[in-house]
Each structure stands twice: as structure tokens, then as C-alpha cells.
């Protein structure tokens, strides 16, 4: 699913993120700073090896939440261009799973807005990841909550 205006591009897609397209979308003579954050799938977390990651979304709501975050960021900072993309489905280790790009007149606000968008995305947008570990076991990552009660 996708939403695209002349200044905002929100995208949920099941293939490698075309980073160069984001950069050219974000470039504008109105901006003097462009901050780009990309999250990549990590192979090692402490001693645990991840073989692959799978991302699932409640797509229409995920896009709606991304749109709220984009609106809030535009309200707080003088944003000229904004990209918020997330990859879905299987993502091998080392590939890009999320991309946040912001172009603003000056760099400080680009960094701040970019940080706000990625931090908020990770707690608000209904997207979940499932890890397949090196032993073949699969686990849904539920950051910050205790293990469910054993039964």
C-alpha cells in the first residue's frame, strides 16, 4: 500500500526498498539538510543468530498511523519532503527493513524529525516481526513485554 503526494511518500512494500528513489524524492532546493535513517535486519542479537525476519502489517491501519506520524512531524518541524517506508514479508539479514527520510531547511530539524519518526513508528505502527533463528525456531518479537505465562 502506498500514499504519495508531491511532498510525502508513505509506502509498505514486499521487495527491496529502492533507496535511490527515496533520495531523489527528498532532494529539493527548499531544503539544506536531508536526514536518512535506514534500519537493517541484524544477524546477531547477543548470542542468538537470526536466519531471517518476516514482517507482517495490518496494512490499512499501518498506513493510517504512518500518515498521523507524518502529519505530526510536519506540524513540529519545517519539513519540505518526507519518506516513511517499511518492507513487509521475508527480509534476509543485512537488508533494509525500514527507511525514514526528511528534508528540512537546516540539518538540526532534519535529524530531530527523523529520530521522532523512527522512534514513533516502532511503538505506534501495527507492524510485527517474526524471527527465524539459526535452529529453525520462530519467535514473534515483542519488545518490552514479559514472556507470556507458560501453560
Amino acid at each position: 500500500m502506498e500514499f504519495r503526494s508531491p511532498t510525502v511518500w508513505l509506502w509498505l512494500l514486499s521487495e527491496a526498498l529502492p533507496v535511490a528513489k527515496a533520495v531523489s524524492f527528498l532532494q529539493t532546493p527548499e531544503a539544506g539538510g536531508l536526514a536518512l535513517f535506514m534500519g537493517t535486519t541484524r544477524q546477531w542479537t547477543d548470542n542468538r543468530e537470526t536466519r531471517s525476519l518476516f514482517y507482517e502489517a495490518y496494512e490499512p491501519m499501518a498506513l493510517a498511523e504512518m500518515s498521523h506520524l507524518s502529519d505530526e512531524a510536519q506540524h513540529r518541524w519545517p519539513i519540505r519532503r518526507l519518506c516513511l517506508w517499511h518492507r513487509l514479508g521475508n527480509v534476509p539479514p543485512g537488508e533494509i527493513s525500514v527507511l525514514v527520510g526528511v528534508a528540512t531547511p537546516h540539518r538540526a530539524e532534519a535529524f530531530e524529525a527523523c529520530r521522532f519518526l523512527i522512534d514513533s513508528l516502532k511503538c505506534q505502527v501495527p507492524i510485527w516481526k517474526r524471527e527465524t533463528l539459526s535452529d529453525g525456531q520462530t519467535v514473534w518479537v515483542e519488545e518490552g513485554i514479559p514472556e507470556p505465562k507458560p501453560r
Binding site: 495490518y58 517499511h86 523512527i118 516502532k122 505502527v125 507492524i127 516481526k129 514473534w140 518479537v141
Partner: peptide, 10 residues
């Protein structure tokens, strides 16, 4: 209606 368990995108 949807039940949203803790999200883990990114």
C-alpha cells in the same frame, strides 16, 4: 475491530 499486540516494526 482489531487486537494489536505490542508492535515490533523497524
Amino acid at each position: 475491530i482489531a487486537l494489536i499486540t505490542p508492535v515490533s516494526g523497524g
